[in-house]
């Protein structure tokens, strides 16, 4: 997993990018539920949902290459899980093992790609705003917003600490590296706490009372 989510994804041109995030979120939810609820063996339904997804990718101009790359790594894990789970499913008797495994993988891929497309064509802030408007508790949305803001900060801090560690120690020796790595995590935890304190004081100084106010 990489922290490669730039903040300005929603600002790029494109008809889908500019759509109201609420519609996109609801559409994604409906799409994923439709995919998941499709009975095993209904290839026509899955096919048309797949076409719809392809159409969306085409219109939105989401980067196909990176979508496929992300999907490929994920599909391996899901394929394995499907192989483990499929033999126990009741549908196996009527449809055969291969069909069951294939439909799990296909349904899963459609849902996964739809989520990725949503993340590509909607900025995180727009998505959060949509969640708030759709009734997700405000505290949770504010927490998510705050989290995404500091995810990158902590990620960079971690990268700096990791670089410093690599510069000062030999590689190898797992016992030693576990001590070093947990020390790093502990340090990051301390710094996160202290940063939260500082940011909170700064927020209080600017009139924070627990509600996030936006212009729209």
């Amino acid at each position: 997993m990489r922290l490669d989510a730039p903040d300005d994804r929603g600002k790029r041109a494109g008809p889908v990018h500019r759509l109201d995030a609420r519609y996109k979120l609801l559409f994604t939810l409906a799409f994923v539920i439709a995919v998941v609820a499709t009975p095993i063996g209904q290839w026509r339904v899955l096919g048309s949902l797949g076409l719809l997804l392809a159409l969306l990718v085409g219109i939105s101009g989401a980067p196909v290459r990176s979508l496929v790359l992300r999907w490929a790594g994920f599909a391996l894990v899901v394929g394995f899980l499907a192989v483990m789970v499929a033999p126990g499913l009741p549908a196996r008797a009527s449809h055969g093992l291969v069909t069951v495994i294939l439909s799990i993988v296909v349904k899963n891929s459609l849902a996964f790609l739809m989520m990725l497309v949503l993340a590509t064509v909607t900025s995180w802030l727009d998505l959060l705003q949509a969640m708030r408007q759709l009734g997700v508790p405000r505290v949770l949305v504010a927490t998510l917003q705050f989290m995404e803001r500091y995810l990158h900060v902590l990620g960079e801090e971690l990268a700096r600490m990791s670089q410093a560690r690599r510069a000062r120690s030999f590689q190898g020796g797992s016992i030693l590296s576990w001590r070093l790595l947990t020390g790093m995590l502990g340090m990051l935890l301390l710094r996160s706490f202290e940063r939260a304190e500082r940011v909170h004081s700064a927020m209080l100084a600017r009139g924070w009372d627990g509600t996030i106010r936006t212009l729209d």
Binding site: M1, V139, T143, E148, L154, I212
Partner: peptide, 30 residues
């Protein structure tokens, strides 16, 4: 949590979530 932390909820929960997320990315050699 909101009853316990009041307006600190957002910053503390948000920062800790970011920390857990970042910590999950540190790989330990097995």
């Amino acid at each position: 949590v909101e009853g316990q932390l009041k307006e600190r909820t957002t910053s503390l929960m948000g920062m800790m979530s970011a920390f857990i997320f970042a910590a999950q990315m540190v790989n330990f050699p097995v």
